[in-house]
Simulated scan of single mutants.
Amino acid sequence: MRSIRLLVLRLARENSHWGYRRIHGELLVLGVTVAASTVWEILREAGIDPAHERASSTWADFLRSQADALLACDFLETVTLSGARLYVLAVIEHASRRIRVLGATADPTATWVAQAAKNLVMDLEDASIRARFLIRDRDGKFPALFDAVLNDAGIEIVLSGVRMPRMNSIMERWVQACRRELLDRTLIWNQRHLLHALREFEDFYNSHRPHQGIANARPLHPLPTPITDPEQITHLDIRRHQRLGGILNEYQHAA
């Protein structure tokens, strides 16, 4: 009976969308004869809701369970001082919150977007990132070739719902942060200036800015060891390093 219990719990753990009847049926297919009520009782005793409603995996469940293998991307629009409209394509890793700015262009053609996808795949391979899913919206700027490039690399495209930005909320929050902390406070002269500002913000975002979603760590750096010495706290010497003429501020201990 213990082996049956372990098997039931394994099936429940590996298939969170299954109810007890689905697990019972799988056991029967495996030749394991056990009453459906027994499966129900095993799940209940283990603190797992045996009802089928448990299965209805929510979008939040999917994001949490797949965070380590999940990417998201989006286009961000901005306007230069001359009135030219530029489009920025960026990708974020859900687990680490690391952002990658793939480029900026005035004309996001299918060729340009597909090449950005190829560059992303190469960057992920160089960083040994094993992504399985990429969330994107249904923007017409994403050509079929964009999806094909990622599919060939083993990355499945997950489309967000129509007018449902919360399905891509982590990427949307980065877009808001980029606007609020950079673009709304910077006069962009041209495409070259935009790319320079974005690279500075990308490095700041990944290496210095704390993120509540990852316990205030930084995407590329864990939190340091807490300072416990009262004397050291009393004599803190914190220096400010400014980027982009003071648009971005970084604070560090004096050397």
Rank of each mutant, 00 (worst) to 15 (best):
I99M: 11
A55R: 05
H235D: 13
T78C: 15
P165D: 03
F201L: 07
R173F: 05
K141C: 03
D147K: 03
A106G: 02
G161N: 04
K141W: 01
L28F: 12
L76K: 15
F62E: 00
T228M: 05
E53W: 14
Q242S: 15
W189S: 14
R2K: 10
A127G: 07
D126F: 07
I247Y: 04
L89Q: 00
C73Q: 11
E41N: 15
I99H: 02
I170C: 07
I4L: 07
L198H: 07
I129K: 02
R185S: 07
N15K: 02
R130S: 15
R240N: 08
R54T: 14
A254V: 02
L134I: 05
V101N: 11
L150M: 00
L71H: 00
V34P: 01
I42V: 15
S57K: 14
L182Y: 13
L89S: 00
A116T: 02
N190H: 02
T58Y: 15
R199M: 09
A55T: 09
T109G: 09
E14H: 01
N206V: 10
L70K: 03
H253C: 10
G154C: 08
L7T: 09
A84L: 07
V8I: 04
E181V: 12
L183Q: 14
Y87W: 01
M1D: 07
L159C: 10
D61M: 06
R98I: 10
L194F: 03
E172R: 04
N151P: 10
S65H: 07
A177R: 15
W174E: 00
D74G: 09
A72D: 01
L145M: 11
A114L: 00
T225K: 13
L7P: 04
A148I: 09
D107T: 09
H17Y: 09
N206D: 08
L27M: 04
